[in-house]
């Protein structure tokens, strides 16, 4: 599983053309993985808002204050090993936004 994290998802000031270009970047990047027949599942995009439940029944609105990068979305890829999966992660647009891709094997 490739998990994408970015410091910010605030695109409220981003012009429309740039948003389109960004959308295209993601589409082309995932399309490239799919073209290799290595896309196993396209995860949903996570919305900006959310809540966090902590021990003791404390509920907070911002789930993201403590971690530097928020989880944005994820995809499932097919790869023989962790290194191959990491190779697929190269070129991910989250990296351009100062974010990261976390590569984690899943149990089947």
């Amino acid at each position: 599983m490739l998990l994408f994290r970015q410091p910010s998802y605030d695109y409220s000031n981003t012009p429309k053309e740039e948003m389109q270009a960004l959308g295209k970047k993601w589409q082309d990047w995932v399309g490239g993985i799919a073209a290799q027949g290595k896309l196993a599942g396209n995860g949903p995009r996570l919305a900006m808002e959310g809540k966090v439940l902590k021990a003791g029944g404390v509920v907070t609105d911002g789930p993201f204050v403590e971690i530097r990068e928020r989880l944005g979305s994820f995809i499932l890829v097919k790869a023989d090993n962790l290194d191959d999966a990491t190779t697929l992660a190269h070129g991910c647009p989250a990296l351009d936004a100062g974010g990261s891709v976390e590569i984690r094997p899943i149990f089947e």
Binding site: K24, D28, V30, G31, A34, A35, L39
Partner: peptide, 9 residues
């Protein structure tokens, strides 16, 4: 291109 990207998914 975008249609093919979607189709591949």
């Amino acid at each position: 291109l975008q249609l093919y990207n979607q189709l591949l998914m």
